[in-house]
Design a protein around this nucleic acid. Structure first.
Length: 426
DNA sequence: TCTGGGGTCCTAGGACCC
DNA sequence: TCTGGGGTCCTAGGACCC
């Protein structure tokens, strides 16, 4: 059997952990740049704050209902996420935990007898809560998709389920599928949901009984096939090896305010490349393709919000590298090419791809030899930046003023990862 | 006035090969 | 006037996830 373990309102729970007075208060956390609402406590949901709406639209309701608001604090969430996952790794056999996102993981439970699954799930949930202070919900079934169905229902009916649901009989599975709308199935997004509704397929139960050929034709070929098999209890989405490295690494940001000068664009791209290269080195990889893009401000024409069209371009490097300064130069040159005088920019980003393991970087017959002393230099900079604070050492291209940086006006202290921001108790 | 960031997988279609 | 078949590789873009 497979379980999915999911932290309840994760970002909000992290914020509350250090402010116990907010334990039962409505809380929301905003996306980067204080743009949208990305996490809500149950109390915030109850007073009617919707998920994903722009902050400025929800602001009035938030103030009126006394909802506590935080900018996102990824240092804090990342650290607490690690603690939750580490706790689970200690409670389960080696290799049984697949971290799926910052607040979720799949676990294999094949070593637990079927009639013990509920008791064991309670044990996992209680231990995580006791060791980390974070509450989780657990769904268990024969496939990933079905465990997601179980998890969602458990979380929706906390009082009745104690946040745990095990689907271990054909009857319980059928009932759960009947209670799940198509758009709530893992793998069905807006487009597919709309299509399914048109064919009068409204619940997961309806979808499960569709013929394979129909699903193949209408739901993205083999993606749909896999989903259908999973709904029918046949495992078709494998557990992933957590050690597999990323195939692309992106760093992209909205600007805190409108950006118009070429210098600012170049600074931003240099800063993003620095971040992306750090991520690259952390997984001991090197990249040989750099994609750089900028997004101009969209002309306002009423109706639905959308970004302007992204303007971007590639550079293929002669050999893969993880050195910031080897990446920065071509990236900034490309940014300068993309820049257009008189244009107002809202967002920019870099994506590194063609990623290979660092030790097996292919030599290039026609390019100069790779200077090896870079690696030691980069390693030293990473260590100093990690231990002291971000960017105590940085490349000059990245700028010193950075007046384009994102807004984060409501960020809580990084309680668990910075000495100078430790929680103080009088 | 103000709308996030970072990923994965798959498909279709073009270029190119013999 | 007549113009094949089969395959691979690459890229752009779509759909999805949290």
């Amino acid at each position: 059997m497979i379980g999915i373990i999911d932290c309840n309102s994760f970002y909000c729970s992290c914020e509350r952990l250090f402010l116990p007075a907010l334990q039962h208060a409505p809380v929301v956390v905003l996306s980067n740049n204080d743009g949208c609402i990305v996490s809500r406590s149950d109390e915030a949901k109850q007073v009617g704050v919707a998920m994903g709406v722009p902050y400025f639209q929800a602001k009035q309701l938030i103030e009126q209902k006394g909802v506590h608001t935080f900018s996102s604090n990824y240092n804090l969430y990342g650290d607490l996420s690690w603690r939750v996952m580490e706790t689970l790794r200690q409670l389960l056999p080696a290799g049984a935990v697949e971290v799926y996102s910052v607040d979720e993981c799949f676990v294999t439970l094949d070593h637990i007898a079927t009639d013990q699954l509920t008791a064991f799930s309670i044990h996992l949930k209680d231990t995580v809560e006791q060791w980390t202070g974070i509450k989780v919900s657990i769904g268990v079934a024969t496939t990933k998709v079905l465990s997601k169905v179980a998890n969602r229902l458990a979380k929706k009916n906390k009082a009745a389920t104690n946040c745990i649901m095990v689907l271990d009989s054909p009857e319980s599975i059928a009932e759960a599928l009947q209670r799940t709308a198509v758009e709530d199935i893992w793998g069905i997004g807006r487009q597919y949901a709309e299509k399914l509704r048109k064919y009068n397929i409204n619940t997961a139960f309806d979808l499960r009984s569709m013929p394979a050929a129909w699903v193949q034709k209408n739901l993205g070929g083999i993606v749909g096939q896999r989903l259908l098999r999973e709904l029918n209890g046949i495992p078709s989405i494998e557990m992933k090896d957590p050690l597999i490295n990323k195939k692309m690494i992106a760093t992209t940001r909205m600007f805190g305010k409108n950006v118009t000068s070429k210098e600012q664009i170049k600074e931003a791209i240099a800063t993003y490349i620095t971040r992306a290269a750090e991520k690259l080195r952390r997984q001991q990889s090197a990249a040989s393709v750099i994609y750089v893009f900028v997004i101009p401000k969209q002309e306002h024409q009423g109706g639905k919000f959308r970004h302007g069209n992204s303007v971007g371009g590639y550079v293929h490097l002669p050999h893969a590298t993880a050195s910031t300064h080897q990446l920065i130069k071509p990236a900034v040159a490309l940014a300068a090419q993309l820049y257009q005088e008189g244009c107002v920019y809202k967002k920019a980003g870099v994506i590194l791809s063609n990623i290979v393991p660092d030790e097996s970087v292919q030599g290039n017959l026609f390019a100069d030899k790779i200077p090896q002393q870079n690696r030691l230099l980069m390693h030293t900079i990473d260590n100093i930046n990690f231990a002291m604070r971000n960017d105590i050492i940085q490349f000059a291209t990245a700028g010193t003023k950075r007046n384009w940086k994102m807004r984060q006006e409501l960020r809580s202290p990084r309680y668990t990862s910075r000495w100078e921001e430790l929680r103080e108790v009088q």
